[in-house]
Amino acid sequence: MAGKARLTAERLHTPPGGGRFAISRLALGLFLVDQDRHRIAVGSDKRQHVPLKAGEGWILPAGAAGICEYDEALSFLRLEVPENLLADVGFERHSDFRPVIGTFDPLLAQLAHQTVSIAGHASALYGETMQLALAAHLAQILAPARPKLVGIDDKRLHRALAYIHENLSTNLSLEDMAAEAAMSRFHFARAFTRALGKSPLQYVIRERMELAKLFLKTTRLPVASVAARVGYEDVSRFGQHFRRHTGRTPAAFRAD
């Protein structure tokens, strides 16, 4: 990353108070202590009371400004991600998302902790790998691929797609997906297949494999952990699906 802006990652301790903020780069903060009396306003002066627990926090787009206040001492992780790093992982619309305040994605929290812990201490290669992993997962969270759908069931299918992408690591069922779309299982399966050219099951497998590819290339998670994070309790079944999807085993794909 020579000659490029670098990601900044730090652990901060601040007294009660807070105040106005303005950020120039995509930024995230992860609280390390509970803040029951936390107030925040983004893009205005209208503060909202948003209690945050340790492990929760915020993700704000570049250019965000507002007010953050808290009545107790605060310990938190703060990371700012430069535009060139986001471009490296294909995140082109990194200033075009709604601020995220509250629950933190578990893997993103883990990556944030690791990135802060190695800041200034790890080898250049390992540091860059962690930064890419963090940026890639941010892109996955903030700008997940959504197929363009047309037709009378467009909004209902979009709800189902959002539900699928938010629950790839869980035991997704046709009944749950159909319920999210407010359709019968038969009607949902038929409408989904007609709109996307794949059955719900085929679509879920494909999206899980794409997410697995991201984890394998950008993290050092064991294959069994990757399998679990994309919804597979059976590692051998995950390997079968991955090989069918990519033509390679997970280990071979990671080594390429």
Rank of each mutant, 00 (worst) to 15 (best):
Phe238Leu: 05
Tyr163Gln: 08
Val33Trp: 14
Ala189Ile: 10
Cys68Ser: 06
Thr14Gly: 07
Ala178Asp: 10
Gly18Pro: 02
Leu157Tyr: 12
Arg243Ser: 01
Glu233Gly: 06
Arg254Asn: 13
Glu10Ile: 10
Arg11Pro: 03
Arg47Cys: 12
Phe21Ser: 04
Asn84Asp: 00
Lys53Gly: 05
Ala143Tyr: 08
Arg194Val: 08
Thr218Ile: 05
Ala5His: 01
Ala179Val: 01
Ala2Pro: 06
Arg156Met: 12
Leu12Gln: 15
Val223Leu: 07
Arg243Lys: 01
Leu26Pro: 02
Arg229Ser: 01
Leu60Lys: 10
Ala255Arg: 07
Ala9Glu: 12
Val89Ile: 04
Ile23Phe: 14
Phe104Asp: 10
Val81Asp: 07
Val204His: 06
Arg185Pro: 14
Phe242Pro: 03
Ser199Gln: 06
Gly247Phe: 07
Ser95Gly: 14
Phe215Asn: 01
Pro144Lys: 09
Val226Asp: 03
Ala87Ile: 07
Thr8Asp: 02
Leu149Gly: 03
Leu26Cys: 03
Arg37Thr: 08
Ala136Cys: 03
Ala5Cys: 01
Arg237Pro: 00
Gly247Tyr: 08
Pro147Lys: 05
Val204Pro: 09
Phe97Val: 12
Ile23Met: 09
Ala109Thr: 03
Lys4Glu: 03
Ala251Pro: 08
His113Cys: 00
Leu12Asp: 11
Leu60Ile: 06
Thr219Asp: 01
Arg243His: 03
His158Arg: 12
Ala119Val: 10
Ser95Leu: 11
Gln240Lys: 08
Thr170Glu: 09
Arg93Asn: 06
Tyr163Trp: 09
Arg220Val: 02
Ala65Met: 08
Gln202Val: 10
Ala195Asp: 12
Tyr163Thr: 04
Pro250Cys: 12
Val235Thr: 02
Thr8Gln: 02
Met183Phe: 02
Ala65Gln: 07
Leu161Phe: 05
Arg244Val: 02
Arg244Met: 04
Gln114Asp: 14
Gly63Gln: 11
Arg156Thr: 13
Ala27Tyr: 14
Leu125Pro: 02
Arg159His: 02
Arg194Thr: 13
Ala255Asn: 07
Asp88Pro: 04
Thr246Leu: 04
Val230Pro: 06
Asp36Ala: 14
Ala9Val: 08
Thr14His: 11
Val50Asp: 07
Pro16His: 14
Met1Glu: 00
Glu175Val: 05
Leu161Cys: 06
Leu138Asp: 10
Glu128Val: 08
Leu132Cys: 05
Leu125Glu: 02
His113Gly: 02
Gly43Phe: 12
Leu12Ala: 11
Ala251Asp: 09
Glu56Ala: 08
Tyr163Lys: 01
Arg39Val: 11
Asn84Thr: 00
Ala119Asn: 08
Ala109His: 01
Gly239Cys: 12
Ser169Pro: 10
Pro51Gly: 05
Ala64Glu: 07
Arg208Met: 00
Asp36Gln: 14
Val42Met: 10
Ser24Trp: 12
Leu221Gln: 00
His38Leu: 13
Phe192Ile: 10
Val50Gln: 05
Phe21Tyr: 15
Arg254Cys: 08
Ala136Tyr: 03
Ala145Met: 12
Thr193Val: 13
Gln114Val: 13
Gln202Lys: 06
His121Lys: 15
His49Met: 09
His113Ile: 00
Ile205Arg: 04
His165Met: 06
Leu125Asp: 01
